[in-house]
Amino acid sequence: MSACPDKEVLLHGLLDGELDAANAQACEAHLKTCPGCAEVFGELQALSGRLSAPGVGYRAPAALRQRVEAMAEGPAAPRRRLRAAAPWALSGTFAAIAASLALVMLQPNTMALEDQLVASHVRSTLAAHLVDVETSDRHVVKPWFNGRIDFAPPVIELADRGYPLAGGRLDYVGDRVVAALVYRRNRHVINLFVWPTKPGLSLAPGPARRSGYSVAHWRSGGLEFWAVSDVDPRDLEAFHQAFANRMQS
């Protein structure tokens, strides 16, 4: 199947977030009614996910990094190098650690749930503790949670929709241990927190944005789902739809 010839360029524009609101809406509406375009768009999303997967881009070799950093210290002032380099190189790391500690220590259980989730998301990306089990294979992630928590989070593959699974992690949110499934969207991380629904709680409002992070919440099969990411809110909503659809099928 192939895309409508007059829509093909628009699909790329939509994928790249380069359409204005009116065109984006029209294009999204067309995707709902045209299986050909929807299929091509799905292929483009999946391709995009594979191209931006970690490891495809190259990293600068260590020797090159040393030479460039030494050069940036200024060839004219070699004596300054040690004194100047250390605080500069470390200050970022210390700031990150201090910030994440502050998130943990200063704001205990009184934090709103969404804030806790965002803090947990930020910690997961700062502290090199994104995943406990690192794999894109759901058949590995799902059993990993067995015995570690008292419920079975649905682990769903969405690589073909542009959200490859990166792994799973245990986290602690709202006074309980929760499952965190980690997905990637291009170079961004989506943390999907899952725990059983407590009876009697009302449903929280839909997509929200807190301090630059998008938050999406839904409930399904007796479980609470909270997706947190720094992706565009529309991307996170698309992730929610893709996840919910596949969970039902």
């Binding site: 190259y58 600068a60 090159l64 940036a72």
Partner: peptide
């Protein structure tokens, strides 16, 4: 320079 430019070493190399 170190703050604005150096963080892009990996991307530039890639």
């Amino acid at each position: 320079f170190r703050r604005l430019i150096l963080p892009h070493l990996d991307g530039t190399y890639s």
